[in-house]
């Protein structure tokens, strides 16, 4: 008679916090970079290339833009991507890029530096693009052209505050998506089009910022959210509905500008 192996012991529920990319400790940044490097090394559906490809190319294009599912779909996307990174480096979270921080270069140093602290190429600066993830004739690596002439400026804190004041979810979502669009245009290069944008590592920090603003909006407007008709809509290809995305704590994460911890008595 076969026996069923015992279930692994349950892990005590402990929220993980996504932090500002500008406020990571050296150790936290090293963990993010290690997770990306490890995920890039996997050539199957657990790997970085596979997850980046869910958004645009290779077909089908799953991402939802100009859609009532914009925020829920991207929250689900980040959730599964972050879990894939946590399979590589336990507890790691994707940081957020505060576009309103007003740095002279715009991009966080963690994502713009050529090298990491050990003098190795910064895995958050650039990424390969798998052949099936490239538009015809497109480059094999991501590139950026931040703030090129004709690009809109990065959103300001006042613009984000104005969006947070909106009380109707659909109105809020529409205006936040427009700020999001402008950041894609500002970064330019690979980020400037739907097809390959998710291959650029800054994509994830950009969308964590969008997700964070939604979380802040939820805290300011308790009880408000997507209309009931949307709640049971599926978020393909993820096994999630809109309703499943509404509570970030149920998804195991929340946001903090910085975190620091020290071992206790145990």
């Amino acid at each position: 008679m076969s026996t069923v192996p015992p279930s692994p012991p349950a892990i005590p529920a402990r929220l993980r916090h996504r932090r500002s990319a500008d406020a990571l400790t050296a150790g936290q940044l090293a963990e993010v970079r290690s997770a990306i490097v490890a995920a890039q090394a996997i050539d199957d559906d657990r790997g970085y290339q596979s997850w980046a490809g869910v958004h645009g190319l290779p077909l089908p294009v799953y991402c939802t833009h100009n859609s009532p599912l914009f925020l829920p779909w991207h929250r689900a996307y980040l959730y599964f991507f972050e879990l894939a990174l946590q399979d590589r480096v336990a507890g790691v979270t994707v940081p957020w890029w505060d576009w309103t921080a007003g740095g002279s270069e715009g991009l966080p140093a963690a994502y713009a530096d050529e090298q990491d602290a050990d003098g190795q190429p910064n895995p958050l600066l650039q990424s390969p693009i798998q052949p099936s993830g490239r538009p015809p004739g497109g480059p094999s690596e991501t590139n950026r052209n931040p703030g090129q002439p004709g690009a809109p400026p990065l959103p300001t804190r006042a613009q984000v505050d104005a969006v947070l004041e909106l009380t109707d979810f659909m109105d809020f979502q529409s205006q936040l998506e427009d700020l999001h669009n402008g950041v894609h245009v500002w970064v330019g290069g690979t980020m400037g089009g739907i097809a390959s944008s998710a291959y650029d590592p800054i994509f994830w920090a950009h969308h964590v910022m969008v997700d964070r603003i939604w979380r802040l909006w939820q805290l300011r407007h308790p009880g408000s959210g997507p209309p009931a008709a949307l709640l049971d809509r599926a978020l393909a290809p993820f096994a999630m509905t809109v309703r499943d995305t509404l509570d970030v704590e149920a998804l195991g994460y929340d946001y903090a500008v910085t975190t620091a911890a020290v071992r206790g008595t145990g």
Binding site: L57, L59, V61, H65, P135, P136, G150, P152, D178, L179, H180, N181, G182, H184, V185, G193, I194, A195
Partner: peptide, 24 residues
Amino acid sequence: AATPRDDEHYAGSFKIFGHGSCFG
């Protein structure tokens, strides 16, 4: 395109994150 955003007639903008072209 040369009219600045601080011109009194400027009202705002919308941004399009484009599909790029057809890949199918």
